[in-house]
Amino acid sequence: MTPLLELNGVNKDYSIGGFLDRSTLHAVKDVSFKLESDKPEIFTIVGESGSGKTTTARMILGNETPTSGTLRFMGQDIAAIRSRADRLKFMARAQPIFQNPFEAFNPLTTLDYYLFSTARRFLGLKSRAEVEAAADRSLQHVGLSLTEVRGRYSHELSGGQLQRIAVARALIPGPKLIVADEPVSMVDASLRMSIVNLFRDLRDNLGVSIIYITHDLSTAFYISDRVIIMYRGEVVESGDAKTVLGSPTHAYSRALRNAVLPPDPIAARAIIEAKLADANLAGPAGA
């Protein structure tokens, strides 16, 4: 059976600098992983800014072409998609969700426009009733309905609701894969869990696989099935999420793990005090 997504030795280099001081930045180095098509899962890419996680996501969506290596989606090389028809077919199966919902939606456009145009484009629907039915169906999956969204602008809704509309839009073509780049970092704490729980429902009820990109290890631990940890473009650790995040072995993963502040005043305070004691021992900085 062909895997849903297969990355094989993917590299991405950017050339930076000008005429005299040109150098190469290796944004992604030799990344390989595979998502099976018969087993939907939440696959998490963890890393700090500059670790190459967003570049990887852009390559999976076909927005960047790899310098070397291949990305195959349902057997097809993503970088080799040329015709408009093939491109649309690929986009219908792999959909993105972006970090900042306030920027993803044009503030002067009503939100239903995004849902309707996605339905027209990917499902080839013509009549207004069909388009509205499709939009309403996918809004139901995220706990909203068309009556709540119709005619609304992005400033009228909270970040959590906007992000759910972004998920509903992505669900319209019936994708097999959703690539979510930092989907909760701009969402309020009280609403964050509603997005994260929604991903779990999508996996269990609709069989959608999700690539969840984040720097937040605690939500990663909460929902992921498998995880890879990226550092400066390289995968430093990968495997079952509970094992990797519960007891990381690589030095960088351990540092990331320790950087998570526990939601407990006594333990969190102890970490800060330990940092202070270290700084005081280190020299004049604490004198």
């Binding site: 009280s190 609403l191 869990m193 509603s194 605690s218 939500t219 909460y222």
Partner: peptide
């Protein structure tokens, strides 16, 4: 609702909007 590493109990999200 704060998730913590090592704890997999399902967290409830607050209904409604601000």
């Amino acid at each position: 609702s704060l998730p913590r590493i090592g704890d997999l109990r399902k967290r409830k999200a607050l209904p409604g909007k601000p």
